[in-house]
Amino acid sequence: MKPKILLNKKKVNTILKRLCHQLIETHGDFSNSVLVGVQPRGVLLLDQIIYLLEEEDIREIKYGKLDVTFFRDDFRRKKKPLNAKSTEMNVIVEGKKVVFIDDVLYTGRSIRSALTAIDSYGRPESIELLVLVDRRFSRHLPIQPDYLGAQIDALQGDRVRVVWSKNSTECIVYLEKKGK
């Protein structure tokens, strides 16, 4: 069975534009804000959001890319080994308003790891969370998004895949049912 399309390119674009406007509403010119993409997949979303914000004439956005592998709580508890991606945090988050950016919010454990990992770069004034897709009713931790693209219901074991085009400017969100 072919995976079901949850959000097509057009819908994702509309959502991303809305999310950018919501960010602008809260963060203004972003002079006191830092956008942080969570590796690996949040980084692709981060790049697209920066592109769209620049189109809205927001310049000099401070951003970083954070890998949370070494801060995960499921080290040695997963069958698959964890592989680290690069961290590029050339910004100071001390006293800044940080927005974590990730594609899918599922159990919330990656974001919990990101909350620990960001400590290494200072104490932010506040931390918010932006996600493209929220798999509701599947959280293991009390973590909720502040900026939300779309909310979906998927069974445990189903896979929500965000597939980006080659140049990483467009994406489609698929749902793969368990065992299919």
Partner: peptide, 23 residues
Amino acid sequence: FETASQFKEIINRPIKKVPSLRD
């Protein structure tokens, strides 16, 4: 080598510690 590169970034942070092997 790939993993060491990530750790090299970590040991150059102000806080050089990660909790991976806490148990």
